[in-house]
Design a protein around this nucleic acid. Structure first.
Lengths: 345, 345
DNA sequence: CTCATTTTTCAAAACGCTTTGAGAATTGCT
DNA sequence: AGCAATTCTCAAAGCGTTTTGAAAAATGAG
């Protein structure tokens, strides 16, 4: 069933039928009703590919998912696209995802742009040495960064958490509880977000006049076993930390395992505070959640990002005015933190 | 830069240029080289939408990701699509993902089919009362199930793990170690996979002449806190289990927490064996992995699924011959299992 | 009842590619 | 050189929409 057949059945021209279905005013209410009814009865829906060609709009957004060298997939990616997907559905957009080896990434962007595969792109996980935004700008395709690029904040649209502030607050919170040696389990410091988090951690310590001990900081992929490993190393050292700050729930779970396996109690002997992206299958919710955390939903970030990009695409005139959206993280008190030991009676 | 402009530049017809680029034999090697070179220099790539309309093939596969009522996203989904994505990239296919509320799912399939959005669909997480395969058959669109449908095994193509066998073996393994009371933390038993796993568990117990104690079985979303909660309940009961069998790594982590918080040692006092889907950010690898497990990579399943569906689409003639692929799970000995207490000297 | 408006409808031209059916140019054979 | 076979190239017709520019039908004012 295509437009031609449908209009034949109705004894109308394709023009009129098309207009009736697309809500144009140049068609009488009566005719429109007749068209709509028949389309429904015959199960007609416009062929997407033809529509795309005719309109020049694909009504779809691309996400490129680079696999890191060690094949690790970050779970926050899924939460993000699930959020974005909700918005896409609302606006009638489709989501196209390309999974690609890290080094092919540029070629993929080129192809997407040259072949006009999508109307816009969301770029994930900006790195310290970031170049994708320049490429995309050159390719002249609308895009949005999930995460800022240092030094190019004004040149792109982005959605990001205030990572520096969040981690400064978290560190401050531990300091206020009397902790002085705070282990920091961070993500890979090739990544923008990890750099900022580290800055926040260091800022807070510096303001409090604490010395910065590099042996307390670890940076790696954010898996549970690595959390255990690094936390154990620190706990076994001659001058162990009394608290941990971690960049993800998985790392926190790992750290907790380490603490317990040393016969210590979390929240009592050793405090843990973590960043919580609100990963649906690693929930940390409830009235008093398991982990004290700085929380910012990555699913919401996905929704916002999609909204911004889509409106950006729709009013193309605002060509070089970039929209940015900074999300603040809440500090949520849970059961994994308490006063430092030396502070107790 | 489009085909017309390119052929003008070359003083060739669009036909010849198109054929040269698509590898048709009716064009001289010299001309082809000239065309390819110029295309490269001018950065020409065919407009995807036009190509799709002309060929009638979208070169893309759809995945529908229904959000469960409680918003839980299963991490295996991401690993699966990452695997499938690799295959798609190889074959030049794109991946389209629709995120959708559970009850809109049927409407989405209808739209995808009517509007010819994709060449094929992969259906995830078949449920006990499954109807999607019937709908897709009616809509006459190629599809493949990730997971069998009981009673319709021969009517669809599918890729699945031998869940029943794997869980029977795992249970048998625990029985061999002398365990008689085995707690079973399963996924939601609305799902096909969970039903089969339960059957495997029960089969092994029955063969061993053990009584089936319903109070030892739990079925829920597979999150870490729920694992802890159910395991704790069981451990606190009057007749606690000496071992746990869990349907996911997240549940196993939860169970481990419970065991430890009761002052017991995993692998010593209480054994844990889990199904391991090989989730990249919850690794359970190495020579002697943390958890003893029945392991089957869901990423590989994704790759296989994509291959099967694509070849299915390519040789359309094999219209009603379905391809099925059963994956066996390996039983990998790790550190979380040991002989039952009452068996020791 | 006419003529100017307004409303409703339409035929045809895009959109950018692939594919068909056929014609021109080249080659090989006698 | 002449003719058949082969190689190379092309104009034009799709694919299924939207959109343009114009015509036909209905309405309203005088």
């Amino acid at each position: 069933m295509n437009l031609k057949e449908l209009s034949n059945r109705l004894n109308l021209s394709q023009t009129t039928v098309s207009r009736a279905l697309n809500g144009y005013p140049e068609v009488s209410a009566k005719t429109r009703q007749r068209v709509v009814d028949m389309a429904r009865d015959l199960g007609y829906a416009p062929n997407q590919q033809a529509q795309r060609l005719a309109t020049g709009k694909t009504m779809s957004i691309g996400h490129v998912l680079p696999r890191s060298p060690n094949e690790m997939l970050n779970p926050i990616f899924m939460e993000f696209i699930a959020g974005a997907g909700l918005t896409y559905a609302q606006y009638g957009y489709d989501m196209m995802i390309s999974v690609v080896a890290n080094d092919d990434e540029e070629a993929i962007y080129r192809e997407i742009a040259n072949r006009k595969k999508v109307d816009g792109i969301i770029v994930h996980a900006p790195r310290r040495q970031e170049t994708r935004h320049k490429l995309l700008k050159k390719l002249n395709i609308p895009f949005l960064m999930h995460g800022r690029i240092t030094g190019a904040e004004a040149e792109t649209s982005w959605v990001d958490i205030n990572n520096r502030r969040a981690f400064e607050r978290a560190t401050q919170f531990l300091l206020d509880l009397g902790h002085r040696r705070i282990g920091f389990l961070n993500g890979n410091e090739e990544m923008e977000f990890a750099i900022r988090r580290k800055e926040g951690y260091i800022n807070a310590l510096t303001k409090a006049g604490c010395e910065i001990d590099p042996t307390l900081m670890h940076s790696s992929e954010m898996t549970e076993p690595l959390g255990t490993e690094f936390a154990l190393n620190l706990l076994r050292s001659s001058n162990p930390p009394t608290a941990f700050l971690t960049s993800s729930i998985t790392l926190a779970i790992g750290a907790e395992t380490a603490v317990k396996s040393n016969g210590l109690q979390v929240g009592n002997d050793v405090s843990i505070i973590t960043h919580d992206d609100v990963i649906s299958f690693l929930p940390n919710s409830g009235e008093s959640p398991h982990f004290t955390c700085i929380r910012s939903s990555v699913g919401e970030a996905g929704q916002r990002a999609a909204e911004i990009l889509i409106t950006d695409i729709i009013d193309q005139e605002s060509n070089d005015r970039h929209v940015t959206h900074m999300m603040e993280a809440d500090l949520i008190l849970g059961q994994s933190t308490g006063p430092a030991l030396q502070n107790r009676g």
